[in-house]
Design a protein around this nucleic acid. Sequence first.
DNA 1: ATAGGGTTAG
Length: 715
Amino acid sequence: MRWIAKTNLCFKSIPAFSQRRIVVPECLRRYLTLSSCPPEWSQDAVFASLIDGSTHFSHLAGVHAKMTVLGLLENSFLITKLVHACSNLGDVRYARKLFDEFPLRDVFLWNAIVRGYSRHDMFADAIVMYSRMLCAGVMPDGFTFPYVLKACAALPTLVIGRRVHGQVFRHGLESDVFVQNGVVALYTRCGDTASARMLFDRLGERTVVTWTSLISGYCQNGQPVVALELFHKMREDDIYPDWIVLVSVLRAYSDIEDLEQGKSLHGCIIKMGLEDEPDLLISLTSMYAKGGQVTVARTFFDRMEKPCLILWNAMISGYARSGHGEEAVELFRNLVSLNVRPDSITVSSAVLACALVGLLELARWMDAFVCQSDYSEDTIVNTALIDMYSKCGSIQLAREVFERTENKDVVMWSAMIGGYGIHGKGQEAIELYRAMKKAGVHPNDVTFIGLLTACNHSGLLKDGWHLFHHMRDYGIEPRHQHYSCVVDLLGRAGYLREAYSFILKMPIDPGVSVWGALLSACKTHRDVGLGEHAAIQLFSLDPNNIGHYVQLSNLYASLRQWDEVAKIRVLVKERGLSKDISYSSIEVNGKLETFRVGDNSHSRFDEIFEELERIEGRLKESGFVNDAESLTHDLIDEEKDRVLCSHSERLAISYGLISTPPGATLRITKNLRACVSCHAATKFISKLVCREIVVRDANRFHHFKDGVCSCGDYW
DNA sequence: ATAGGGTTAG
């Protein structure tokens, strides 16, 4: 008894100690070595404390051994506690062993084992144990269902979940808040927000958890606006938000791209004193990064001494999603060098970032990384790789990834089809589509966007038209993108009137993309009347987008209507817009060099300019004439030549020619669409210098070889 | 003992 007194620990203080979850102290461990318990002690209470105070599985094993010696294994209360503690400390198998060895199981013991499996994501086992419990004739209670429902929510279908929901009624638990929260979460997690909403509306009692389930459900099913409405209703109901519901609300603001509202919520979070909640910090990081405020996001990231993987992922994907590909790749390299193990989300975000950067050499590095990682078979990662390679200019390497992946889903097929699309390989895209159907994979709306784009870029009017009408056979309702593809298709081919009447017959409001497609077609075919009509729609729908003004101005310029061009320039100035600066980048030795129009800042400018002049001279010799239609100013011919020759694309080509070995492919990326004159010149140059030149413009890829372009002058 | 959240591909 003396050792107890010495440590100032009397029996009364044991429960307090167990609640604080302190490591089993030495004194209690010594107790385990005694052969019997002092008679005035309650053995049960001491062992309960020992179990609760264990912080390592080895402690529990010791306690279990002692219980065996003392013959305490008949006590269902203690066994339940042991099972519970074992699963908490990570050894569900040991918990199951204890469970199996104890034949007289009450509802508490059953709950403990179901909970153990559910908490460790072993959902099938949780459901199996639940059904065995029913077979054993034990009545589930209000604690059983939350665990079981959580397991059901993780299954891909609602079949079992619905059955369990029925059993909730049979056991009279339809007014238990915890159980009902589980049911609401079940339906939202399985994507059935309608059922979840119906249940929610009928509930008598709702806690912040109930609201959170539904709000996050709407977020995950692409209805952030509804999620936000619900959040405001929740506030009207005087439910005080906690940090978990705010996670979903931040995501909703991020999804509707309303950074201002997000910022003001951030202010509230600071006032509520929740800013240091690590998991809320992840949401804030993600929101700011996706919203383009990468510097702010980065300060959150840097604030953490040891960021968790999800924070890494949020930062990397945030960089990528806001167009900061290089920063994303750099951060991914940081992670790798710190020996942090990436998961499939990290890797797919990094692959997405590489697609954005566009360097083929970087793409190959990323591919090699994936191949030696745990994710070489991962469908999502490989889909990202296919997209990456096609955006980095190599449709062949994209196809290799496609071929080597075993499990192809619709998304992967669609990515490959879309890849052929932006490379102007319409026939290949259609062939692949046939193969996909043959493989028993059903197309979705994205598949058709890829197909229609492919038809567009290859001028396959009939095929595109046919495919568009084919969508309905699959029950797919066309979206804006599909309609704009068709308008593009008709418009490029010169069927401007048909395109316009097609727009008038659309069942949904034609948006920016549809009118944009029409305007662009009017520019190609120099139809001022219809072009102006399209432009007026665009100016009211999307007044701050400089691109529409440039398009209309170019249309006027192509018809030499300089007065109109000047009017547009005034309009642009009035609205305070400025023209996007055009630039081209070229990949040399795995590095990007960027040029703007008339750029003379490069260290090798003299050599570049010399090469440029040499090339222009040879072009003229072979009869090439610069087409001035893409200029918006009324210049004399000589000036036009000078401006066109110093277009960023030509500077990039010249630099490529002097800094790579003869015959090497040149890979160029432009931020805007290819201009008519440079496109024609590049075709000539490819033949003149016997080089393949790959140009990625804002829309698609052009492969120049032997004087022709893969786009067939159709872009 | 219970339920809710954050990061990926077209």
